[in-house]
């Protein structure tokens, strides 16, 4: 066992777990942050995606030990006190979430994408989300959700 310390969604955590335990399982089992989902367990579907020091990672491929000292953000940390993040609001309005199982990972991937490209082209959106598989939507509603979120963020920046 190893004592591992990191912050999740702004909260400091210290846990004693096997060092090879998947970060996904640490989040879900030890910290009860079940918004992070397991779809494939091999880094293919992105349902377990989180932000790790600001970068998108698949938490099923990160051993707990490597999270020592990291700053993590899961879907539970995207909203603030029950107020939806604009990305979440856009997914809600534009039909970006159907069954919802890919949605947490998809929203974090979008977050990461818009950090890098505030005005993403369609090609950038397609590439940025290609690691997050969705079987319900055919992705079109998700693309619209992302575009609306980008547009709103830009209008907000323009105003301020």
């Amino acid at each position: 066992m190893s004592v591992i310390q990191f912050s999740v969604n702004g909260k400091r955590e210290s846990i004693d777990v096997p060092p090879m335990k998947r970060l996904l399982d640490v989040l879900r089992e030890d910290l009860h942050l079940t918004g992070t989902k397991e779809g494939c367990g091999e880094g293919e579907c992105g349902a377990c995606a989180i932000l790790f020091d600001g970068e998108l990672v698949n938490s099923c491929l990160v051993p707990a030990l490597q999270a020592n000292g990291a700053r993590l953000c899961t879907i539970e940390g995207v909203s603030t006190e029950g107020h939806l993040h604009p990305i979440q609001q856009c997914f809600l309005e534009k039909g970006g979430a159907q069954c919802g199982i890919c949605t947490p990972g998809m929203i974090l991937a979008t977050h990461h994408l818009l950090d890098k490209y505030p005005n993403p082209t369609m090609a950038q959106i397609q590439e940025g989300l290609a690691g997050n598989l969705c079987r319900c939507t055919g992705y079109m509603r998700i693309f619209e959700s992302v575009q609306q979120a980008a547009q709103q963020a830009n209008e907000l920046t323009a105003k301020s």
Binding site: G35, E38, Q88, Q89, G95, A97, T103, P104
Partner: peptide
Amino acid sequence: GSPIRKEGRAKVLGAAKYIDD
């Protein structure tokens, strides 16, 4: 019309509880 999906808020928050949750 296109009202907001009933259970959509829980889904985008990651708060919806699937069986493995």
